[in-house]
């Protein structure tokens, strides 16, 4: 018989978002996502928490400025696929202190491990008799392009890493805090909470978050998508009407 009581229970993580729905209305200037969670580990081994929040995927088009005949012009744009429109990773410590390269890469934790690629710039061909070699048209510059995407997104406040964003507030109880800027895209967000022990991910929880337009903002947005021509005519009537009202008002004064 297997002695059930003697088997050490596996450490586990549990977490919940304080808000699972963020409503964007006219006063929206960004939001704060707060997440509470607990680590269940009878042995109380040292634990680290990493929280990865990804927004809806948005392909990125990026061009490089090159000098042609003294003028700075854009190169042909390169499209990166699979890039999230929003990306935040919060952790209890610096990611490289929590785990090694492989687990971080596997989880896509950290800006340098984010999986984005420019598939159109790649082709598979046979070189030196070796089949299926992946060749990038961007060549050795590929990393420059990738870094540029991350740098520009970070500058726009859409990508960030916060190595102090998760804190243990009590024994086994942690709190994570992530700021969502007003520019963050609308859509379905995923939050992945990972418990690391001894450099290995031992437990994972996934939570979902929805950012959606509300109130008048939503009504106008839906109207502009569902009946675009009516919306256009209406916007012109508003414009012409306002112009007429102003001219009448000023004539009287």
């Amino acid at each position: 018989m297997i002695p059930l009581v003697d088997a050490p229970p596996a450490p586990a993580v549990s977490a919940a978002l304080t808000d699972t729905e963020i409503r964007v209305s006219s006063g929206f200037r960004g939001a704060r996502i707060v997440l509470y969670g607990a680590v269940f580990d009878p042995k109380d081994r040292p634990s680290d928490i990493v929280v990865i929040v990804r927004g809806p995927d948005q392909p990125i088009r990026i061009a490089r400025k090159t000098q042609v005949a003294g003028l700075w012009l854009n190169s042909r744009p390169v499209v990166f696929e699979g890039a999230p429109g929003f990306y935040r990773v919060a952790s209890t410590r610096k990611l490289q202190d929590i785990a090694g390269f492989a687990p971080l890469r596997h989880l896509g934790a950290g800006l340098e491990h984010l999986t984005i690629a420019a598939p159109l710039e790649r082709r598979v061909e046979t070189r030196y008799g070796v089949r299926d070699v992946v060749v990038s048209r961007l060549g050795a510059d590929y990393l420059d392009w990738r870094r540029a995407v991350l740098r520009l997104k970070e500058k726009a406040g859409l990508y960030a890493a916060d190595p102090g964003g998760v804190r243990f507030v009590d024994k086994g109880l942690f709190r994570a805090q992530l700021d969502l800027p007003a520019e963050a895209p609308i859509g379905r967000y995923s939050a992945r909470i990972v418990l690391f022990q001894d450099g290995k991910p031992v437990s994972i929880r996934d939570r979902e978050l929805i950012v959606e337009k509300a109130g008048v903002e939503r009504a106008l947005y839906v109207f502009s998508k569902d009946r675009p021509w009516t919306y256009g005519v209406l916007s012109v009537i508003v414009a012409l009407g306002a112009g007429w009202v102003a001219s009448v008002a000023f004539r009287r004064s």
Binding site: I62, L73, P77, R151, L152
Partner: peptide
């Protein structure tokens, strides 16, 4: 912008 050396060589479209 056509003549000034850009600070940032890449632009998001």
């Amino acid at each position: 912008d056509l003549f000034i050396h850009p600070d940032e060589a890449f632009v998001l479209m």
